[in-house]
């Protein structure tokens, strides 16, 4: 375990908690793609199947898995609940959240069957999960490119998400030099994810940060 990975995992968890805090405190879901949030739940559920095998890696690893699964499910619950509490915003979300996730699911499923560590259910599910995580933000990216509004996607959320991705690269470098081991599939998916995220951040910067700067009185 190295500081990059711990900080990366904590900022990943922080990004989910910030999103929950934003939804609950501002009581708005504007700009959030429910599809991306559902894909994240799928990422955690398919990746953490080893929780059921009780071959626990470590206490930290187990407790964080439980945190990730529960907090990401809670985000989706909050978004679903806004169907009643803020019906208009919920309808707007469904109207603008139009990315065809079928393509992502099919593509990542094929990738999982072709590229995995071992042709077992758990390993194919794990591989599906890392490929899925690398493209899960696409619905959110397309929604942002269309609407440009994003009250709930605050800079804190974007920063924490970016920090998580960024810190995983030095973590892999550190592990390669200290343990001489590297998970090639996680590395490949992680690089794709970092590229997709940087595209998302560029869009966010253009759409939200520069636009709000223009609106200054």
């Amino acid at each position: 375990m190295n500081p990059f990975r711990i900080l990366g995992d904590l900022s990943h968890l922080a990004s989910i908690l910030v999103l929950i805090f934003n939804i609950k405190s501002t009581n708005t879901i504007e700009g959030i793609s429910i599809k991306t949030q559902v894909l994240y739940v799928l990422v955690f559920l398919t990746r953490y199947l080893d929780l059921f095998s009780f071959r626990l890696v470590s206490f930290y690893n187990t407790i964080m898995k439980l945190f990730f699964i529960s907090s990401s499910i809670y985000v989706v619950v909050l978004l679903q609940r806004s169907k009643t509490t803020q019906a208009v915003a919920y309808k707007t979300m469904l109207l603008t959240d139009t990315f065809k996730v079928q393509y992502i699911l099919l593509g990542t499923l094929i990738a999982a069957f072709v590229i995995n560590h071992k042709f077992t259910f758990v390993e194919i599910a794990w591989s599906f999960s890392v490929w899925l995580e690398s493209v899960a933000i696409l619905p959110q990216l397309f929604m942002l490119s269309k609407s440009g509004k994003s009250k709930s996607l605050t800079v804190h959320y974007i920063f924490a998400l970016g920090l998580y991705r960024t810190l995983y690269i030095p973590n892999w470098i550190w592990r390669y030099h200290t343990e001489g081991v590297i998970d090639k599939i996680a590395l490949a998916a992680g690089i794709i994810q970092t590229l997709v995220y940087s595209d998302f951040f560029y869009l966010y910067y253009k759409k939200v940060i520069k636009r709000s700067a223009l609106n200054l009185p």
Binding site: R5, D9, H12, R47, D50, V57, S58, N61, M64, K65, F68, H117, K118, E123, W126, N171, D183, A186
Partner: peptide, 10 residues
Amino acid sequence: ITKNVVHDEL
């Protein structure tokens, strides 16, 4: 057989 892969990263 290939070693059992242990994923210790989240």
